[in-house]
Design a protein around this nucleic acid. Sequence first.
DNA 1: GATAGTCCCTCACGCCACGTAAGGGTCAAG
DNA 2: CTTGACCCTTACGTGGCGTGAGGGACTATC
Lengths: 256, 256
Amino acid sequence: MHTVKQVAQMAGVSVRTLHHYDAIGLLSPAHVGTNGYRYYGRDELLRLQQILIHRELGIPLAEIGAILDDPGFDRLDALVHQRARIAQQADRYAEMLRTIDRTIAELKGDRGMKDEDLYSGIVDPRKQAEYEDWLAKRYGPGVARQIEESKARAGALPEAEMAAAMDELKAVEQGLAQAMKDGTAPEGGANDALLERHRAWVSRMWDRPCPAEAYAGLADMYLAHPDFVARYEAIAEGFAEYLAKAMKAYAGRLDG
Amino acid sequence: MHTVKQVAQMAGVSVRTLHHYDAIGLLSPAHVGTNGYRYYGRDELLRLQQILIHRELGIPLAEIGAILDDPGFDRLDALVHQRARIAQQADRYAEMLRTIDRTIAELKGDRGMKDEDLYSGIVDPRKQAEYEDWLAKRYGPGVARQIEESKARAGALPEAEMAAAMDELKAVEQGLAQAMKDGTAPEGGANDALLERHRAWVSRMWDRPCPAEAYAGLADMYLAHPDFVARYEAIAEGFAEYLAKAMKAYAGRLDG
DNA sequence: GATAGTCCCTCACGCCACGTAAGGGTCAAG
DNA sequence: CTTGACCCTTACGTGGCGTGAGGGACTATC
């Protein structure tokens, strides 16, 4: 059990903020003493973490409450989701850095930089005019026109489909990485559901079936090339090898 | 000269915001027509960029105005400064990601995570008491222990090195993606510096030299495998093909 | 040259997420 | 039993806009 000040210091918010969150029913203490003191436990700390992550993403408090109190709310699922959004923000910052660099270069050298380029990465994607378009594209109508547009550039997938595909890939990888961390053996059948999703994903991206041997070959290819290794090692230490082993074992079972 | 709406769309702010900035004297139009219309020029766009960067860092508008209007203010100098702060923020996001990952792991596995660890990266460093400690840790002593920890897992790269490698890869990719957006031809020699960095990176990861043919082969491999295509298309539409072309052309020049 | 559609303007009130006192209990250490 | 750091509630203030309302201005088309 922690007092307001303890929680405030840990979480980097003010005491007033905790009072406020209590007042609006967003975060109530686990316990209130007869003296009126607020005491917070582990669960409240976790909830506060969620609140702060959401807040960081610019979501209004009322909405955060609605999300967290939704009966269908799954903490794990939400975290995975928020992780992706945070990663997006991180990317935005990376682009801001590049924009600043280019602006610096221009101030020094006077090379041409288009006006709108001044803001790449600084623009909050939520506020960009295309955002609603994007949402509509992703969930609603207007798909027809969109497909036409994206076919202009041959071979490329529509953005929405690509985003969905990346999400799926990420989810599968996270699942497998977790399995590794949990000590699940790569060769066992415990990961088969995830591996099947992975294989299906590959097949979708190839736009043709991915039989067992091809899948096993892919595993070898992963290990042989640094970009893959780097990418998977970034997810978790030792993950590249784990993934390759799991894929080959699964392929073997498919063939068997 | 741009109207309010044009500027608003470029910069990702609302028209109301521009009105507001005008009202408080933070950003005045270059010109106001007899009809009262506001018109903004290049200088104002640059100033707005500065404003938004500062705002992103949580600096109040009044203070931003004071900073920008300070007679000793040097745009270049300020940009360099802000760059550093943005980079710091980016680091914070990276740590948030790690915190989230650890929380995910804990929710699944119930392994111990100290209460205060729930907030590492989420805490705004300005508010955290340990901020100075953190700086000391980062640049000062205590480095030895860190290195020891990361070498615990043999064979794998130390985390720090991996992070640096990923940064380098990202930088190169971003640079090439930008070149593509700028209309630079993939086969021309304009990207050679970046491509050499890329080849050197591959070689470092392989831990053996990467001759021209191997590099060209890698390009083919990129195109042949969905994970790569997906990853590069996520960076920018058409980038997978662009990168492959550039790599092969560069390999050709190396050989020739 | 009328009509419609899209832009632009100036008030002016409202709102969210707290900040900031004011006034007063509580608790652990010395 | 006092001191000082903590806790409480109540209440008003503030920053950075959002969101109309009401009304001109410009462009295109019929």
